[in-house]
């Protein structure tokens, strides 16, 4: 006990430790790793989008400063504008085409497995909050999707 107190006094004074004391300190650090887990689990909050937009503005000014190859820049800008326009058109077209998923969906391997599990939970909860339907497993099948041959005869929409 006294030795332990001596060690603690030394630690507080940031004094040099003997080999035995260093070993003891390593053991103490090992045994206190659960406290480390508490710190590890502290949440990290994303800065808000305004903050990010301000940062982007500052960075974009800095990014342009050393580059003065006007000709190339203009050409590149043109490409970017055309590219962005194409992307925008593509996005609009794509948005208008509803996705028909197969039952066994592949999630793109763009993040690690653990991140994707959590994202899957978050997305399915959100989907059920907004969509009314919870039978997300049967949203469609691998077979040909419905073509509208059997229209419903109910007059529900008359009441609209």
């Amino acid at each position: 006990m006294k030795e332990e107190q001596n060690l603690i006094t030394k630690l507080k004074g940031e004094m040099a430790l003997s080999a035995e004391e260093s070993t003891e300190l390593d053991a103490l650090l090992d045994s206190s790793s659960s406290i480390g887990n508490v710190i590890r689990d502290l949440p990290h909050e994303e800065p808000n989008l305004v903050w990010r937009s301000q940062l982007n503005e500052k960075l974009s000014v800095l990014a342009e400063k050393p580059k003065r190859r006007i000709g190339l820049w203009k050409w590149a800008s043109g490409v970017v504008v055309v590219g962005a326009a194409s992307l925008a058109v593509w996005s609009v077209v794509n948005t208008r085409t509803p996705v028909i998923a197969t039952t066994n969906t592949t999630i793109a391997d763009s993040t690690n497995f653990e991140d994707q599990l959590m994202q899957s939970h978050v997305e399915s909860a959100a989907a059920m909050d907004v969509s009314s339907a919870y039978a997300l497993d049967v949203v469609s099948s691998k077979e040909t999707s419905y073509t509208g041959e059997e229209e419903w005869s109910t007059s529900d929409l008359e009441s609209l």
Binding site: T95, P98, V99, A101, T105, T106, I107, A108, S120, E123, S124, A126, A127, V130, S131, S132, L136, V139, D156, L157, S159, L160
Partner: peptide, 23 residues
């Protein structure tokens, strides 16, 4: 009430859009 609403959501890497007529 009755009505029509447009619903969009993302699930398992896919994006869905539905037009729901509801009562």
């Amino acid at each position: 009430y009755s009505g029509q609403r447009v619903v969009e959501f993302r699930l398992d890497g896919e994006r869905y859009k539905n037009i729901e007529n509801l009562i």
